[in-house]
Amino acid sequence: MVEATARPRRHRSSTTRVVDAQAVIALADTAMIQILNDVGTRVWNLIDGHRSVQEIVAAVRGQLETEGYSSVSEGLDRDVEIFFEDLSAHGLITWSGAGS
């Protein structure tokens, strides 16, 4: 369960490069590489250790609705929560503030 007020932070040994709107992330400690889709990339780009989960969700929802993807923003809260659980399980993020 991810707390809405928790603040995610990218793992210090992660490296990111965005290619054609897809984030490619390498985690040096584990030699793992992940590719994120469009929404995942938007979320990842907003992770800075200061923004909370709910702030990130709101920002992504704003982007999608501005670009005309209102239907995609439905269910976004749950999708992003699952996404953060996956990122945490793969060691790509850590948490500060109210923990998960």
Partner: peptide, 28 residues
């Protein structure tokens, strides 16, 4: 596609990808 190709290539570059600086050079 470019992203998947880049990820596949980077996975096969030994040693250097083990540090963030090296990984970034490999990505580029």
């Amino acid at each position: 596609g470019a992203a998947e190709a880049m990820a596949e290539i980077a996975t096969s570059v030994p040693f250097v990808s083990e540090t963030p600086e090296g990984a970034l050079r490999v990505f580029e």
